[in-house]
């Protein structure tokens, strides 16, 4: 079927839907109620609506044809393509707010790696994320350059809606929709045109439950999930359903969620993880940490063996705190000598 601005008015709605099933939701999102008129061409459908009704519905057939042709084009490339796999991103240095050169030569981050970002609030963490998302080419205030797979990136990363480079998980995120956990994940899966939907949804809910301290069912309304459960669901959903190869995390609060497993889940889905944090455990879990000062990267530090040992000590302490928390919640007394299990 040839779809362009010339042919589109005379194509039959039924044929269009048969060829491109995704147009069903396109019609519905554009308030085109074709049901009962499947046998008509689009032009006849619009003619039969009548001028007054078209005006009422704010439907402009010419604009609609243009949008439809563009949408089909985008969807065909979305569905058919062998996505360029992002194996790594590379940050090349620019300058800080005072114009002084950044303190590193080149930072390559491969998939399956975690990099933490440390530095005071307002020091330039969002600009760094902005640069990555915009795949900066020395055309942002920091003059940084971002490479993908060690090469100058395809401009599509800047503007595509379906191929966003970065997915974000941040501290103050909430669910705002009035849906059950199942419906919510289903909606997301639909928008991503996932094929084995049932299976993917079940997997996400299971993984989220593995991460959350307290279990929840697929029928729980998302707005009544606890903070930890919400974060667990957001992370599992992003890891499995989001196509973005890079995940940026702005702190994971230490309550009601197994943070180590959460990071492992993201890594097992082959994501590149960048994590802004003030928490020493998270900062040290990373392979490297970026130190940001005055809008620029002042240092890139590799986590040393000594620091890894400190991390184990911190993790033990963390476990102890969590076990005390659990005991207090269930009404037990704490004992000094008790081992931590």
């Amino acid at each position: 079927m040839l779809i362009n601005l010339k042919t589109i008015p005379n194509l039959i709605i039924e044929d269009l839907l048969l060829e491109y099933p995704f147009l069903d939701s396109f019609f519905s999102n554009n308030n085109i109620v074709y049901q009962g008129n499947e046998g008509k061409s689009l032009a006849d459908y619009f003619d039969d609506l009548g001028q007054e009704h078209r005006e009422d519905m704010a439907i402009d057939p010419d604009l609609f044809y243009q949008q439809l042709v563009e949408f089909v084009k985008q969807m065909i490339s979305f569905l058919g393509k062998d996505n360029e796999i992002v194996e790594s991103i590379t940050i090349l240095p620019g300058n800080d707010k005072s114009g002084i050169a950044e303190g590193f030569t080149k930072l390559e981050i491969k998939k399956g790696q975690i990099i933490s970002i440390v530095g005071p609030t307002g020091s330039g963490k969002s600009r760094l994320l902005g640069d990555i998302e915009w795949v900066a080419q020395a055309d942002t205030p920091t003059n940084r350059r971002i490479l993908i797979n060690n090469d100058k990136p395809d401009p599509k990363w800047r503007f595509s809606t379906s191929d966003k480079l970065v997915a974000q998980l941040s501290q103050n995120m909430n669910f705002v929709m009035d849906l059950s956990v199942y419906q919510f994940v289903e909606l997301h899966a639909e928008s991503r045109l996932v094929e084995n939907r049932e299976e993917v949804i079940a997997n996400i809910i299971k993984k989220a439950n593995d991460l959350a301290g307290e279990k929840f069912s697929p029928h729980t309304p998302i707005t009544s999930l606890s903070g930890g459960q919400s974060r667990a669901l957001m992370i599992a959903d992003t890891a499995i359903l989001s196509k973005s190869p890079i995940i940026l995390i702005d702190e994971i609060e230490n309550a009601g969620i197994d943070r180590k497993r959460a990071l492992n889940l993201l890594l097992s889905e082959n994501k590149i993880v960048l994590m802004a944090t003030h928490d020493p455990i998270l900062a040290l879990m990373a392979d490297k940490r970026i130190v940001i000062k005055n809008g620029g990267i002042s240092k890139v530090i590799e986590t040393t063996i000594e620091e890894r040992q400190i991390l184990s000590t911190l993790e033990e302490l963390d476990k102890k705190i969590l076990s005390y928390r659990r005991k207090l919640r269930s009404g037990e007394r704490l004992l000094e000598e008790e081992s931590i299990h």
Binding site: N30, Q67, F71, T161, Q168, M173, F184, M234
Partner: peptide, 29 residues
């Protein structure tokens, strides 16, 4: 976008795209 989940952002953007596929869609905080 900083106060809703990644999933809601993706669904919302894809709905916007389906009513205006020709537009450049940007996320701004």
């Amino acid at each position: 976008g900083d106060i809703v989940s990644q999933a809601e952002r993706e669904v919302f953007a894809s709905r916007v795209n389906s009513v205006n596929p020709k537009a450049t869609i940007m996320h701004i905080n």
